[in-house]
Amino acid sequence: MAAQDQTLIPPIAPTTGTVDKPVVPLPGVADWLVNFCRSYSIWPMTFGLACCAIEMMGVGMARFDMSRFGAEVFRPSPRQADLMIVAGTVSRKLAPAIVRLYEQLPAPRYVMAMGNCAISGGPFAFKDQYGIVLGVDTILPVDVYVPGCPPRPEALLEGIFQVQRKLTGRRLVAVPAGLDLNMEQDTVRNNPGNTGEKA
């Protein structure tokens, strides 16, 4: 990763992608039930940065329909949203606004880096590049990475399933028949079982 000008963007948040710990822990079964309910009510925040946002809109439409999993309620106010889908290229000028939006989200909150630009800068990671934040995880703790340029709508749906998995500890939506998804290798970074090697 290219060295970034620290005077412009100071490192704000640690890059440990974890779900916020609850202030008051609940007993086991109740905790799981609450998390199960949360996982079927992931309301994303209405904001898109670049072309990935077009794919994000596609997921809400008739062909893919995010609402099947209760995630179609795009809330315009960060106070009412659960999931921040960083869909697109994060420019340096926009980075403070994105950090502020993240800070306005009430806990529990989740961040998804959608597309190669949000993950690592994507096509903008070249020498002497000065305007683009190379990876949103340098400024926010990211929970789920959805690669692609842009990712297909199915990939974004899979990203939501991974948020569900992170909440409840297992995959809630069945893998379609005939599709070989190697679930050992998932998109959740910081998973001890993930060696980072591609199958």
Partner: peptide
């Protein structure tokens, strides 16, 4: 699910 989610959401 929505009701439980909102019930356990942080109040700011």
């Amino acid at each position: 699910a929505d009701a439980v989610k909102l019930l356990f959401k942080q109040i700011l």
